[in-house]
């Protein structure tokens, strides 16, 4: 049984790490704003899985009291605090997602594209920003797409 629990823990933590890494990859590498939002959702899922797994106890029941309704009769319970935390995180996550998607819709309407580099280029042309900085942001090989995404999201 302990062997099982140990394997279970390793599998769950490995899954959480994989989700976080996949989500980060989705946020860093693609140039499309929609892909960046999808990566954010994956990253969030990974963190939530890790938090719930951290509060798990192998020998305990779910934190819902049943029939005799006494804490003594229920025996050991799974830690309720990380669960409440993750519940909060999930609901805030959908709020953040909605705000991000609203910005995506607005960028598409204002610029006609979701490509971060194209949006950054057009913003530079329209605002007359320092061409050296924006050109570097748009064309240099080492430019961080995340930074370009931020500038794009700041669009009016």
């Amino acid at each position: 049984m302990t062997m099982d629990a140990e394997m279970l823990g390793k599998a769950l933590y490995a899954g959480a790490v994989c989700l976080v890494l996949l989500g980060l990859y989705g946020m860093v590498v693609p140039r499309n704003l929609m892909r960046i939002v999808l990566g954010l959702v994956l990253l969030e899922s990974g963190v939530n899985l890790f938090l719930v797994a951290a509060g798990f106890r192998a020998d305990a029941a779910a934190p819902i009291l049943t029939a005799p309704f006494t804490a003594q009769a229920a025996g050991p319970l799974v830690d309720p605090v990380p669960q409440a935390l993750v519940l909060t995180a999930i609901v805030i996550g959908v709020g953040v997602l909605a705000l991000g998607l609203a910005l995506v819709v607005r960028v598409k309407e204002a610029y006609g594209t979701l490509d971060t580099h194209a949006v950054a280029n057009r913003m530079a042309r329209e605002t007359g920003a320092d061409p050296a900085v924006t050109a570097a942001g748009a064309r240099t090989p080492g430019a961080l797409p995340v930074a370009a995404g931020r500038t794009a999201e700041d669009a009016p």
Binding site: A5, E6, L12, R57, T70, A71, D79
Partner: peptide, 20 residues
Amino acid sequence: LPFGGAPMQVGQAIAGRALE
């Protein structure tokens, strides 16, 4: 990180007295 035996004390304290 240990798995299966959460080291957190707060959760167990709350589980013990939340009903009262």
